[in-house]
């Protein structure tokens, strides 16, 4: 199972990758912004994408729209500080699969991953 983690924060990428590893997922890929994420997404068939919202070059929302615009139905989890109702609705309308607000407990992330990760 291939998982793409997109976040401009190296720390946040490491936290998420660590949680993925704890779920038994070793095949993880990291991207530092939406553009990097979209480039990798087009080159590799991913089974799950976790993306931040606020990132340079291309935001997580724009990245999500690119993914859905390509016809892909891959699960995309938005991992973000954007917890306002309007923002969540915007993400839902763009086709987000699930949503996790920062800060989160390790178990919250684990629970989300368990739903989408079939090891």
């Amino acid at each position: 199972m291939k998982v793409l983690v997109v976040d401009d924060s190296g720390v946040m990428r490491k936290i998420i990758v660590r949680a993925l590893n704890a779920c038994g997922i070793k095949d993880t890929f990291e991207a530092r912004d939406g553009v990097d994420g979209w480039t990798q997404f087009q080159a590799t068939p991913f089974d799950l994408v976790l993306t931040d919202w606020n990132m340079p070059e291309m935001s997580g929302l724009e990245f999500l729209k690119e993914i859905r615009g390509s016809g892909s139905t891959v699960p995309v989890i938005m991992v973000t500080t954007e917890g306002e109702k309007g923002r969540v609705i915007e993400a839902i309308q763009a086709g987000v699969t699930d949503y996790l607000c920062k800060p989160f407990e390790q178990e919250d992330l684990q629970r989300k991953l368990d739903k989408y990760v079939a090891v």
Partner: peptide
């Protein structure tokens, strides 16, 4: 694999916020 409906996602975030 389970997918959340839009209203479930929104409800979960709003519940977390409240």
């Amino acid at each position: 694999m389970t997918e959340m409906a839009g209203q479930d996602i929104l409800a979960e975030v709003l519940q977390r916020n409240s």
